[in-house]
Simulated assay, not measured.
Amino acid sequence: MPNQFKRTLKEGKQQIGIWSSIPSPFVTELLAGSGYDWILLDTEHAPAGVPQMIEQLRAADAARPGAGGRTSAVVRPAWNDAVLIKQYLDIGAQTLLLPFVQNAEEAHYAIAATRYPPLGTRGVSGAMRASNFGRNASYLHCAHEDTCLLVQVETREALAEIEGIARLDGIDGIFIGPSDLSASMGHPGDSKHPEVDAAICDAIVRIRACGKAPGILMADAARASKYLQLGAQFVAVAMDVGALRMSIEHSLRQFR
């Protein structure tokens, strides 16, 4: 299946997403039908793994398209690990967001893990979900064409390596992790700190100047709009856990 998310990034267009940490196919289907361009399905900070993710990907595929069309699923493995990358690609994930990539060497490792030999090091299986259990004979030869690789820069040190990471063929986008970045810069829990905000703005401009797509998670509407205006292309503007918590607590406060 063509990767619409990847193609839209290459066209330079912006995509608005929602961040999902609730490991439930029911919730995934609900969110994927809400009209967002993409949905992040998390396993780094969510209690989910490969078997659970199969069901979430099925739910995303089954969701009725929202007002903006079909929602693309982006899977975040727990780490930049070749085994995890292989497993998530094998079950059908087309777009991966890999956390805590610090430099070009680590980014190159990630690229290799998403490609079959001779282009990379991805392990070969002839009968996995991604190839329709072996029915798609061309999968081994062209899978990388629709694999979208996004890497996270989320420390002061990683920001200094943006150009080196971005120049690598195979990196489709670079995601700025605001929470880890603020902690790395000495402002844990305060991504609004002027120093952190300035670093994010600078990173977005530099990533875009390198010809790659910048991305970020930002639930603050004003700041999300600011980053979009600077050139961010894939921005998650809502989180399911946070939205649920705030909504139910707001409802309770009306009666207590």
Rank of each mutant, 00 (worst) to 15 (best):
G177A: 08
I162R: 09
Q152I: 15
D169I: 10
L168K: 13
S179M: 10
A160G: 11
A166G: 02
R156G: 00
I174W: 02
G173F: 01
L168I: 13
L159Y: 09
E157P: 08
I162Y: 09
R156C: 00
G164S: 13
I174L: 08
E157S: 14
G170E: 04
I165K: 11
G177C: 04
F175N: 05
E154P: 05
I165H: 07
L149P: 05
L168G: 11
R156F: 04
I174H: 05
A166L: 05
L168E: 11
S179V: 12
R156T: 13
A166W: 02
E157K: 15
I176S: 04
E161L: 07
F175P: 01
T155M: 12
A166F: 03
I162F: 11
A158P: 07
A158W: 05
G173L: 04
S179K: 00
G164P: 12
D172W: 03
V153M: 14
Q152E: 05
I176T: 00
Q152S: 03
R167M: 14
I162Q: 12
S179E: 10
L168D: 08
T155I: 00
Q152D: 00
I176W: 03
D169K: 15
L159T: 09
V153N: 06
A160L: 13
A158S: 15
E163N: 14
I165L: 07
V153I: 14
G170A: 06
L159R: 12
A166Q: 04
C148L: 10
A158C: 07
L150N: 04
E163A: 15
A158Q: 07
V153K: 03
G164W: 09
F175S: 03
E154R: 02
R156E: 15
R167E: 14
V153A: 14
I171W: 04
I174A: 10
I174E: 09
G177D: 01
R156S: 14
G173I: 08
A160H: 10
I162P: 14
G177H: 01
L150C: 01
R167W: 01
L149E: 06
V153G: 00
A160T: 10
G170F: 02
D172S: 13
L150Q: 07
I176E: 05
G173S: 07
E161K: 14
Q152Y: 02
F175C: 00
L149A: 06
S179P: 01
I165C: 05
I162W: 08
I171R: 06
I165Y: 04
E154T: 09
I162D: 09
L150W: 12
P178L: 10
T155R: 10
I165Q: 10
G173W: 03
E163M: 06
E161H: 07
P178R: 12
T155Q: 13
R167Q: 15
G173Y: 02
P178G: 10
I165V: 12
